[in-house]
Simulated scan of single mutants.
Amino acid sequence: MHALKIQNIEKIYGKVKVLKGIDLEIQPGQFLILVGPSGCGKSTLLNMIAGLEPVSNGNIFIGDRDVTHLDPKDRDIAMVFQSYALYPNMTVRQNIEFGLTIRKTEKSEQKKIVEKVSKLLQIEPLLDRKPKQLSGGQRQRVAMGRALARDPSIFLFDEPLSNLDAKLRVEMRGEIKELHQREGTTIVYVTHDQIEAMTLGDVIAVMKDGEIQQFGPPQDIYDNPRNQFIASFMGSPSMNFIPCQAEKVNGVIQISLESGNEKVKVPIKQNIKGLEAYADKSIILGIRPEQITQQGEDKPDSAKLNCDVELIEPTGPDTLVTVRINGVKTVCRIHPTAESKVDKLMPLLLDMSKVVFFDPDTQERVY
């Protein structure tokens, strides 16, 4: 049985179609990420699942119930907002109990639930404080505690970590992941942060302009993007896009790569049938920074190229080096001890086994 099923959902404001026929389905216990740039429609879709926005067309099912036109209180959902949305005049305990009181849960049961939730989220010492006495991370824990107290069918998170500093965001991300793994809850989580999407989700829906561009497991989307938008959005640093000239030599498609005074021709050994149509034409090579490293032990499907270093950015566990290949800036990920200097040549190794290709006009993946 599905936990959530969305069928051909549309949202129309006047003459503007904000959501253009969204279809997706997740199973009980799955963690779904809705990710995309600002204005893509992800928060609108979440609000429609919650019942905070009316549906223009289509249907929403939670479990086996059609909840398309039900009030939020009747949908068996709990929502955690970006702004925490805590009652400032209530203590932490009262904030967690509030929904239980509205549903007329017995006091003894309320106490058990508050004890369980506060222990789970490690907020027991905070129960008698008010929100103004809490840090941002503590407030977000309380907001999560209030949602958990309800024990709903689905939890909805609307960019819950965007107000936190970088260190606290990483910590809270880990706590949400642990909570999901421990409790087996079904979660729909909105973010514009692709690192959150990759680390948290079981499945990801990448959205753009009111449409789902790709839906699937995080690693599959990262390794097999359908178009340049997805390839550029998922990954930090972004995938490199290098314009190339393709040609067919002895029945094999080759591409030309050039940096400084060096030019090499690289045969494409992957079985990509669509490349045949690009012989003697331009094509876009998509290659991740971690697929361009300092030269060392040769790999079966690799290309060597000496490149002029333009920028060096140490990050600790590795170093990002910017070079120029075929006239475009290209980011490489090298070992932090590798010797590199600005304006000096660096021998680099391009792993061609996982590269992808895109049509320069449509930006669609070549298969």
Rank of each mutant, 00 (worst) to 15 (best):
M1K: 09
H2Y: 13
H2M: 06
L4V: 15
Q7F: 05
N8W: 12
K11W: 01
V16Q: 13
V18P: 00
Q30I: 06
Q30M: 05
L32W: 15
G36M: 10
P37D: 06
G41H: 05
G41S: 04
L45Q: 06
L45G: 00
N47Y: 05
E53W: 02
F61W: 15
D66S: 10
D66P: 10
K73V: 11
R75F: 12
I77S: 01
M79F: 11
V80C: 03
Q82W: 08
Q82P: 01
S83A: 14
S83T: 10
Y87N: 07
N89M: 09
N95S: 00
K104G: 07
S108V: 08
E109G: 02
Q110M: 08
I113C: 02
K132A: 12
K132G: 07
R139W: 03
R146H: 09
A149Q: 06
R150T: 06
I154Q: 09
L156A: 11
L168P: 03
M172T: 10
I176S: 07
V188E: 15
H192D: 06
D193N: 13
K208C: 00
G210K: 11
G210D: 11
D223L: 15
N227A: 09
A277P: 01
Y278A: 04
Y278W: 07
I287V: 15
T315A: 12
L320S: 04
V328C: 03
I334T: 00
H335E: 15
A338H: 05
L349V: 03
L350D: 01
D351A: 07
S353R: 14
D361V: 15
